[in-house]
Design a protein around this nucleic acid. Structure first.
Lengths: 155, 155
DNA sequence: TAAATACCGACTGAATTACTAGGTAATAAC
DNA sequence: GTTATTACCTAGTAATTCAGTCGGTATTTA
């Protein structure tokens, strides 16, 4: 799976949406200002997120974006795959001098790594990050509640 | 850590070197032909690998490249870091609206992932891949020895 | 001396990133 | 109904990276 700053922008924006969208829709203008991402770039990212139904847009004054599903149902992998479109690392279909050679070995290595990364990110939901933020805020406020993070499964 | 096709090229080339370099130095021309990577691009990659002492070059006719250390002492992470130069994901030094915000949360998430990937790749050595190749060849030859892979630790 | 190899630097087309510019469409407030 | 606000859409663009080409120089073996 591809990991770029683009995916990070998307995750950051979605997290902003999850944190601030509890009382109503959040405009891209707000996210843009909060996170220092250009408005038009956000529009591009959200077009991709919308097509995967990770967010829902509402037009007109007072409009903005909602999460498309609950924060616990959206994994980080979902978000990244939406904007970064999972390019399968060039798989050798048995072609060339691939069998038994260095190239094929590297392919399987990369596939393993790819799976590893995916599982890591698929196992963390937006909801997890939100809760992490709440815990952190509590610590900052002087509270000592170090609550173990509940890890929900979102594929 | 950055993961690109560049790193994959480097790993592939190093694996080719490990597999074919037991009897003498391997020329970049050979690797270029084996792996379908342009000679000049290989030169660039090997300049980086050489500066990290992962390979050792010998000039003149009959020359080529040796591994700089034993295959078990070279981890995949070593190789990738040599050519892809580990760009630390823009860390917020407490600046801006970062504390408690979505941005900082995303940063820690990315740091965690980065560590995860690094550990995965640091735990696999070139030697492991070579042994994997030998096992595979034995299976192809009809032998049934499914030997558990010894996993050596190379940092 | 000649050939083979590593080694070195500048340049290049293609792709991607992050962004700008300039729209149209829907909807709430007046 | 008009207007303002928002999402939504398309095209273009500077900077960067990737992967490669080209044209060298330095070293060593035959």
């Amino acid at each position: 799976m591809r990991l770029s700053t683009k995916g990070r922008y998307a995750v950051t924006a979605m997290l902003d949406l999850a944190l601030n969208g509890k009382t109503g829709p959040v405009t891209l203008a707000e996210i843009s200002e909060n996170q220092g991402i250009s408005l038009s770039y956000l529009e591009q990212l959200f077009a991709a997120l919308r097509s995967k139904e990770l967010v829902r847009g509402v037009r007109g004054p007072g409009g903005g974006y909602y999460l498309g599903k609950s924060a616990d149902e959206i994994s980080i992998a979902n978000i990244i795959c939406a904007v970064d479109e999972w390019v399968e690392f060039t798989r050798c279909g048995g072609r060339q001098n691939c069998s038994g050679g260095a190239r094929c070995l590297t392919h399987t290595l990369w596939d393993d790594l790819s799976t590893e990364i995916f599982n890591f990110l698929a196992d963390i939901s937006l909801g997890d990050l939100v809760r992490r933020n709440l815990n952190k805020k509590q610590e900052e406020d002087g509270s000592l509640s170090i609550v173990p993070q509940s890890s929900s499964q979102a594929a």
